[in-house]
Protein backbone atom coordinates (compact mmCIF):
# COMPACT_ATOMS: atom_id res chain seq x y z
CA UNK A 1 0.00 0.00 0.00
CA UNK A 2 2.71 2.41 1.05
CA UNK A 3 4.84 1.45 -1.89
CA UNK A 4 1.93 1.99 -4.21
CA UNK A 5 1.31 5.38 -2.73
CA UNK A 6 4.87 6.51 -3.21
CA UNK A 7 4.75 5.32 -6.81
CA UNK A 8 1.57 7.31 -7.25
CA UNK A 9 3.38 10.34 -5.90
CA UNK A 10 6.08 9.95 -8.50
CA UNK A 11 3.58 9.62 -11.32
CA UNK A 12 1.69 12.68 -10.12
CA UNK A 13 4.97 14.59 -9.87
CA UNK A 14 5.98 13.68 -13.41
CA UNK A 15 2.55 14.68 -14.66
CA UNK A 16 2.91 18.03 -12.92
CA UNK A 17 6.11 18.70 -14.72
CA UNK A 18 5.11 17.41 -18.11
CA UNK A 19 1.44 18.31 -18.33
CA UNK A 20 1.71 22.11 -18.50
CA UNK A 21 4.40 21.77 -21.16
CA UNK A 22 2.41 19.64 -23.54
CA UNK A 23 -0.08 22.47 -23.98
CA UNK A 24 2.49 24.62 -25.76
CA UNK A 25 3.09 22.09 -28.46
CA UNK A 26 -0.61 21.36 -28.76
CA UNK A 27 -1.26 24.94 -29.80
CA UNK A 28 -0.75 24.77 -33.56
CA UNK A 29 -3.36 23.03 -35.61
CA UNK A 30 -1.42 22.69 -38.87
CA UNK A 31 0.66 19.52 -38.95
CA UNK A 32 4.21 20.32 -39.98
CA UNK A 33 6.03 18.21 -42.57
CA UNK A 34 8.17 16.39 -40.02
CA UNK A 35 11.54 15.20 -41.27
CA UNK A 36 14.09 12.76 -39.87
CA UNK A 37 16.89 15.27 -39.37
CA UNK A 38 20.31 13.73 -38.75
CA UNK A 39 20.87 16.32 -36.00
CA UNK A 40 17.85 15.19 -33.97
CA UNK A 41 18.10 12.72 -31.11
CA UNK A 42 20.72 12.32 -28.43
CA UNK A 43 23.36 11.09 -30.88
CA UNK A 44 22.41 13.69 -33.50
CA UNK A 45 25.14 15.06 -35.76
CA UNK A 46 25.19 17.50 -38.66
CA UNK A 47 25.78 16.16 -42.15
CA UNK A 48 28.54 18.43 -43.44
CA UNK A 49 27.91 17.77 -47.12
CA UNK A 50 24.27 18.81 -46.64
CA UNK A 51 25.36 21.89 -44.68
CA UNK A 52 27.77 22.90 -47.44
CA UNK A 53 25.03 22.53 -50.04
CA UNK A 54 22.75 24.52 -47.74
CA UNK A 55 25.39 27.22 -47.42
CA UNK A 56 25.53 27.47 -51.20
CA UNK A 57 21.74 27.91 -51.28
CA UNK A 58 21.99 30.55 -48.58
CA UNK A 59 24.71 32.43 -50.46
CA UNK A 60 23.08 32.32 -53.84
CA UNK A 61 19.45 32.70 -52.85
CA UNK A 62 18.65 33.77 -49.28
CA UNK A 63 21.56 36.18 -48.85
CA UNK A 64 19.98 38.56 -51.35
CA UNK A 65 17.62 39.67 -48.58
CA UNK A 66 18.58 37.90 -45.33
CA UNK A 67 21.69 38.23 -43.16
CA UNK A 68 23.23 35.75 -40.73
CA UNK A 69 24.88 38.35 -38.55
CA UNK A 70 25.75 36.12 -35.58
CA UNK A 71 27.90 33.83 -37.72
CA UNK A 72 31.55 34.58 -38.52
CA UNK A 73 33.24 33.44 -41.73
CA UNK A 74 35.72 31.47 -39.63
CA UNK A 75 32.82 29.43 -38.21
CA UNK A 76 32.53 27.77 -41.63
CA UNK A 77 35.49 25.66 -40.57
CA UNK A 78 33.02 23.66 -38.45
CA UNK A 79 31.13 22.53 -41.54
CA UNK A 80 34.21 21.42 -43.41
CA UNK A 81 35.61 24.42 -45.27
CA UNK A 82 39.38 24.85 -45.32
CA UNK A 83 41.10 28.04 -44.16
CA UNK A 84 41.88 29.02 -47.74
CA UNK A 85 38.32 28.47 -48.86
CA UNK A 86 37.08 30.57 -45.94
CA UNK A 87 39.51 33.36 -46.82
CA UNK A 88 38.29 33.47 -50.39
CA UNK A 89 34.62 33.33 -49.31
CA UNK A 90 35.17 36.21 -46.88
CA UNK A 91 37.08 38.10 -49.59
CA UNK A 92 33.93 38.25 -51.70
CA UNK A 93 32.29 40.55 -49.17
CA UNK A 94 33.05 44.22 -48.64
CA UNK A 95 32.95 45.71 -45.18
CA UNK A 96 33.01 49.31 -44.02
CA UNK A 97 35.83 49.94 -41.57
CA UNK A 98 37.62 52.87 -40.06
CA UNK A 99 38.34 55.53 -39.30
CA UNK A 100 41.95 55.13 -40.45
CA UNK A 101 44.85 57.38 -39.44
CA UNK A 102 43.58 60.07 -41.78
CA UNK A 103 40.17 59.91 -40.11
CA UNK A 104 38.53 58.42 -43.19
CA UNK A 105 36.10 55.51 -43.29
CA UNK A 106 37.07 52.99 -45.94
CA UNK A 107 35.89 49.79 -47.61
CA UNK A 108 37.90 46.64 -47.25
CA UNK A 109 37.55 42.96 -47.98
CA UNK A 110 36.01 40.96 -45.12
CA UNK A 111 38.33 38.74 -43.07
CA UNK A 112 37.58 35.28 -41.67
CA UNK A 113 37.22 36.90 -38.22
CA UNK A 114 34.42 39.21 -39.41
CA UNK A 115 30.76 38.41 -38.99
CA UNK A 116 28.80 37.75 -42.18
CA UNK A 117 28.07 40.99 -43.96
CA UNK A 118 24.33 41.46 -44.39
CA UNK A 119 22.61 42.54 -47.60
CA UNK A 120 21.41 45.92 -46.28
CA UNK A 121 23.13 48.85 -44.64
CA UNK A 122 20.37 49.22 -42.05
CA UNK A 123 16.86 48.01 -41.21
CA UNK A 124 15.10 50.89 -42.92
CA UNK A 125 16.86 50.26 -46.21
CA UNK A 126 15.80 46.62 -45.88
CA UNK A 127 12.18 47.65 -45.40
CA UNK A 128 12.13 50.05 -48.32
CA UNK A 129 13.59 47.39 -50.58
CA UNK A 130 11.01 44.81 -49.53
CA UNK A 131 7.67 46.54 -49.73
CA UNK A 132 7.77 47.49 -46.02
CA UNK A 133 8.40 43.95 -44.76
CA UNK A 134 11.64 43.38 -42.90
CA UNK A 135 13.48 40.19 -43.94
CA UNK A 136 14.56 38.79 -40.57
CA UNK A 137 18.12 37.77 -39.81
CA UNK A 138 18.35 34.01 -40.26
CA UNK A 139 21.13 33.06 -37.83
CA UNK A 140 18.66 32.10 -35.11
CA UNK A 141 15.55 31.48 -37.18
CA UNK A 142 15.37 27.74 -36.42
CA UNK A 143 15.43 28.42 -32.67
CA UNK A 144 13.13 31.41 -32.92
CA UNK A 145 10.15 29.62 -34.46
CA UNK A 146 7.91 27.03 -32.83
CA UNK A 147 8.53 23.76 -34.66
CA UNK A 148 12.14 24.65 -35.44
CA UNK A 149 13.66 22.95 -38.48
CA UNK A 150 10.40 21.19 -39.36
CA UNK A 151 8.62 24.54 -39.44
CA UNK A 152 11.20 26.12 -41.73
CA UNK A 153 11.21 23.14 -44.07
CA UNK A 154 7.40 23.16 -44.17
CA UNK A 155 7.34 26.89 -44.82
CA UNK A 156 9.70 26.59 -47.78
CA UNK A 157 7.49 23.85 -49.21
CA UNK A 158 4.19 25.40 -48.17
CA UNK A 159 3.53 27.92 -50.97
CA UNK A 160 0.17 27.48 -52.67
CA UNK A 161 -2.12 29.45 -54.96
CA UNK A 162 -4.62 31.56 -53.02
CA UNK A 163 -7.74 29.51 -52.31
CA UNK A 164 -10.88 30.80 -54.02
CA UNK A 165 -12.77 33.55 -52.20
CA UNK A 166 -9.67 34.37 -50.19
CA UNK A 167 -9.22 38.09 -49.64
CA UNK A 168 -5.61 38.38 -50.67
CA UNK A 169 -3.61 41.47 -49.76
CA UNK A 170 -1.50 43.29 -52.31
CA UNK A 171 2.01 41.87 -52.64
CA UNK A 172 1.43 38.97 -50.25
CA UNK A 173 1.75 35.25 -50.91
CA UNK A 174 -0.22 32.31 -49.62
CA UNK A 175 1.58 29.78 -47.42
CA UNK A 176 -0.08 26.88 -45.64
CA UNK A 177 2.27 26.97 -42.69
CA UNK A 178 2.80 30.68 -42.09
CA UNK A 179 0.74 32.01 -39.16
CA UNK A 180 -2.12 33.90 -40.78
CA UNK A 181 -1.24 32.30 -44.15
CA UNK A 182 -0.14 35.53 -45.84
CA UNK A 183 3.58 36.00 -46.12
CA UNK A 184 5.48 38.89 -47.73
CA UNK A 185 8.25 36.64 -49.04
CA UNK A 186 7.55 35.01 -52.42
CA UNK A 187 8.52 31.35 -52.69
CA UNK A 188 12.31 31.73 -52.64
CA UNK A 189 13.27 28.38 -54.15
CA UNK A 190 12.38 26.32 -57.18
CA UNK A 191 13.88 23.29 -58.93
CA UNK A 192 17.45 23.92 -60.10
CA UNK A 193 17.68 27.44 -58.69
CA UNK A 194 21.18 26.43 -57.59
CA UNK A 195 23.58 23.96 -59.15
CA UNK A 196 25.13 21.64 -56.55
CA UNK A 197 28.87 21.01 -56.87
CA UNK A 198 28.57 17.44 -55.64
CA UNK A 199 26.08 16.48 -58.33
CA UNK A 200 23.08 16.17 -56.02
CA UNK A 201 19.87 16.78 -57.92
CA UNK A 202 18.66 20.25 -56.98
CA UNK A 203 14.96 19.60 -56.53
CA UNK A 204 12.74 22.01 -54.62
CA UNK A 205 12.50 19.73 -51.59
CA UNK A 206 16.21 18.91 -51.64
CA UNK A 207 17.11 22.60 -51.64
CA UNK A 208 14.64 23.28 -48.84
CA UNK A 209 16.09 20.44 -46.83
CA UNK A 210 19.70 21.52 -47.28
CA UNK A 211 19.16 25.17 -46.47
CA UNK A 212 17.11 24.23 -43.41
CA UNK A 213 19.94 22.02 -42.20
CA UNK A 214 22.39 24.86 -42.75
CA UNK A 215 20.22 27.25 -40.74
CA UNK A 216 19.83 24.66 -37.98
CA UNK A 217 23.61 24.79 -37.75
CA UNK A 218 23.76 28.62 -37.69
CA UNK A 219 21.19 28.57 -34.86
CA UNK A 220 22.98 25.92 -32.80
CA UNK A 221 26.61 25.64 -33.86
CA UNK A 222 27.33 24.03 -30.48
CA UNK A 223 24.89 21.16 -31.08
CA UNK A 224 27.40 18.38 -31.80
CA UNK A 225 29.66 19.32 -28.90
CA UNK A 226 26.64 19.69 -26.63
CA UNK A 227 25.20 16.28 -27.47
CA UNK A 228 28.45 14.39 -27.27
CA UNK A 229 29.31 16.00 -23.93
CA UNK A 230 25.75 15.25 -22.83
CA UNK A 231 26.06 11.54 -23.52
CA UNK A 232 29.32 11.38 -21.54
CA UNK A 233 27.88 13.42 -18.68
CA UNK A 234 24.77 11.28 -18.41
CA UNK A 235 26.81 8.10 -18.52
CA UNK A 236 29.03 9.37 -15.71
CA UNK A 237 26.09 10.59 -13.64
CA UNK A 238 24.19 7.32 -14.06
CA UNK A 239 27.22 5.36 -12.95
CA UNK A 240 27.93 7.48 -9.88
CA UNK A 241 24.25 7.56 -8.92
CA UNK A 242 24.00 3.78 -9.00
CA UNK A 243 27.10 3.61 -6.84
CA UNK A 244 25.65 6.14 -4.42
CA UNK A 245 22.47 4.09 -4.19
CA UNK A 246 24.63 1.09 -3.23
CA UNK A 247 26.47 3.10 -0.59
CA UNK A 248 23.22 4.48 0.76
CA UNK A 249 21.70 1.01 1.09
CA UNK A 250 24.82 -0.30 2.80
CA UNK A 251 25.00 2.59 5.27
CA UNK A 252 21.31 2.36 6.13
CA UNK A 253 21.38 -1.41 6.53
CA UNK A 254 22.76 -1.28 10.05
CA UNK A 255 19.66 0.65 11.17
CA UNK A 256 17.41 -2.37 10.57
Amino acid sequence: MKVMQSKLHIIVLLLTILFPLSVFSAGDKVDLMEQKWPFNGIFGRFDNTALQRGFKVYREVCAACHGIRHVSYRDLKDIGFSSDEIKSIAGEYEIKDGPNDEGEMFQREALPSDKFVGPYENDNVARVANNGAYPPDLSLIVKARAGGADYLYSLLNGYKEYPEDYEASEGMYYNTFYPGNQIAMPSPIEDDIVEYDDGTEATHTQIAKDVTAFLAWTAEPELEERKSLGVKTLFFLALITIMLLGVKRKVWKDLD
Binding site: K227, A238, V247
Partner: peptide
Protein backbone atom coordinates in the same frame (compact mmCIF):
# COMPACT_ATOMS: atom_id res chain seq x y z
CA UNK B 1 24.58 9.75 1.72
CA UNK B 2 20.85 9.89 1.08
CA UNK B 3 21.19 13.51 -0.06
CA UNK B 4 24.08 12.58 -2.34
CA UNK B 5 22.02 9.86 -3.98
CA UNK B 6 19.12 12.28 -4.42
CA UNK B 7 21.53 14.79 -5.90
CA UNK B 8 22.66 12.20 -8.45
CA UNK B 9 19.10 11.56 -9.59
CA UNK B 10 18.43 15.29 -9.75
CA UNK B 11 21.56 15.98 -11.79
CA UNK B 12 20.59 13.29 -14.31
CA UNK B 13 17.28 15.02 -14.99
CA UNK B 14 18.92 18.45 -15.00
CA UNK B 15 21.71 17.33 -17.38
CA UNK B 16 19.23 15.66 -19.73
CA UNK B 17 17.46 18.99 -20.04
CA UNK B 18 20.65 21.06 -20.44
CA UNK B 19 22.26 18.82 -23.03
CA UNK B 20 19.34 17.47 -25.01
Amino acid sequence: VKDYFGLGVFLIIYAALVFF
